[in-house]
Structures are given as structure tokens and as C-alpha cells.
Amino acid sequence: MRCHARIRCFIIVALAILMMIAGNPALAQTLGPDGAPNPTASKMNEQQLLQQSPRIEGDIDQPIERARVLIQPAGRAWDYFHQVTLRWIGAIAILGMIAALAAAYFIMGRLRISAGRSGKKISRFNSFERFAHWLTAVSFVILGLTGLNITFGRITLLPLIGPEAFSSMSQIAKYLHNYLSASFVIGLVLIIALWIRDNIPRKVDVDWVRQGGGFIKSKHAPAGRFNAGEKLVFWFALGAGAAVTVSGVLLLFPFYVTDIAGMQIAQVVHAVVAVLFVAVIIAHIYIGTLGMEGAFEAMATGEVDLNWAKEHHDLWLEQQLNKEPLAARSGPSSVPAE
């Protein structure tokens, strides 16, 4: 009797389950014959499917190891970083730097030569040094703009110019970014070789910082060929340049050295360092052009006004004058750049 009672109970429960499934087609679709989730169902919870491990595990006959990866959960974190986190980092760093420089300009104005122009010139950078600088600078500007297009182009340019124009522009930008990276690396290596000796930190740099870097008009900030601020930019450019170069090579030649996870790390490093690099160089460009009178001439013509050199690089000027007396005339000086 007990056996018959158990059989009747089982039949009743089975019929109840069948009636529930028949009344809920979505549930019937999501469950397979063995009661496990059906991965081909039109309505399937992804998390529910992933929880079926080891049922979803298996083998694949694919000779290329990286092609065997069908699902990589870390890719979701990388995608969120690229689509959300990186945009916030870039916007805060770049727009924050622009806002800070704009505030400095409206508060302090342009840093003028306090004694006025003397009309006498002294050579600061020779032609080869200027070539190395401009090779690096032009390459960096193009790399920066084309790289920012990858991060911000979809939310800024795409709505303005449309998908076809944006697609064509992005294709050109990709080629420029890939190929001009070589000229940037060459220029960076030349700059390091030319100026690393003059950018070694010295005691005078501490004094420069204490005197406010020359931005406090009542105080004089002594400096050699490069002041402490320029040295900070130099060493930052060296470190950031090395980081974007190494990570960029890994991205240009995918899977030769690392796997998918390593590629994602390389892209994160490349992107974060690049946006910080852009923010720092914006400040460098501002000081060398709009922020300081006479500074741009050093890289435009290679010569600077004598009074400008006295105010901003007095120790370097003294060394140059001790080598050979300055010609007492306006125009190019006979004093060679160090």
C-alpha cells in the first residue's frame, strides 16, 4: 500500500510540474531535457548559464590557443574601463589642466620680461636640438589627437559628423597613430641623448622651488640650462614615453609576447599614461607660448633675449658669457649654445 501511495504522489508531482511548464513557455525554453539551462534559449540569464560549471566546460579542436577562449569574464571589466573609467580619467586630467592654466592666465597674466627686451641675443639651442624637439613635439601632438579620438571620438565627433565621415576619419587616424609612433620614439631617444646630462637634479633646483620658480615677482629663482620645472617635465616625459612605447609595441604586435589578459593590461597602461602625458604637455605648451614672454623663441629660432636668459637661466647664462664675451650688438650672438 505504501508503494502505491508513493507512486501516486510521484505522478501527481510530475503532472503538476508538466502543467507549470506547459503554462509557462519561457521556462520550457530555458530548461533543457535534463533540467539544465538551455544555452540556445531566446530568454536566458547569462549568470544562470555561467553557474552551470562544469557542465559548460569542454574541449575545442583549435590549434591557435588564444582562439580557444570563447568567454573571458575579465573582458567585461576591461570594456567598462574603456567605455567609462578611462573617459572620466581623461576628462578630469585634460579639462582640469586646461581650467587650471586658464585660471593662472587670468589671475597672473603672461609672465613678462621684467627688465624688458635688451635687443641682444644669445644662442640657446642649435639646429639639431631644435630638430629633435620638433620631431618629438609634432609626432606627439598627432599621436595625442588620434589617440583621444579612440576614447572620446564616439561621444564627441560621431554625433557631429555622422558615421560615414567618422569611420573614414578614424581609419586615417589609426594609420597615423601607428606609423608616427616610430618618429616619436626616435625623437624621444634623441632628446634623452642630447639633454639628459643637463637635466640631472642639483641643489640649485631646490632653491628654484623655494623661490617659487620665478612666478613670484619679488623673488629671484636661480637656474642652470634647465630649471627644476623643466627637469620634472623631462623626467616625466622619459618615464611616460617609455611606458607608452613598450605598451604600444605590445598593441602593435598582438600576442607575440603576451596573451589576451596581457593585451588588456597593456591597453590600460597605454591609455592612462597617455592621457596624463597629454595633460602635462598641455601645461608645457602653455608655458612655452602664451604663459611666458620670450620662451617660444628658444625653439623657434634657437636664440633668446639676453634679459630673458638673465631672469630665467642666470647660471647657464653666466657659464656661456665666461666662454666668450657677448657681442655688443643686436641680432644673433656669437656665444654658442652649450
Results as ranks from 00 to 15, higher is better:
H4N: 14
I11A: 14
I12G: 08
V13C: 14
I17E: 04
I17S: 01
A28T: 00
P37F: 15
N45E: 02
R68H: 09
F81R: 04
H82V: 02
G96I: 02
I98H: 00
A99G: 07
Y105W: 14
G116D: 07
I122Y: 04
S123D: 06
F125E: 00
F128I: 10
H133L: 10
W134S: 13
T136D: 11
A137T: 13
T146E: 08
L148Y: 12
I150E: 04
R154L: 10
N178Q: 11
V189P: 05
L190M: 13
L190Y: 09
R197P: 03
P201D: 06
K203W: 12
D207I: 06
W208D: 02
G212N: 07
G212P: 04
V233M: 06
S247H: 09
L250F: 12
Q264M: 13
V268A: 12
V269G: 02
F277E: 00
V278F: 03
V278G: 00
V278S: 03
I282E: 00
H284R: 03
H284Y: 11
I287M: 12
G294F: 05
G294K: 04
H312W: 14
L315D: 04
Q319I: 06
Q320P: 04
K323T: 09
A327G: 12
S330H: 08
A337S: 15
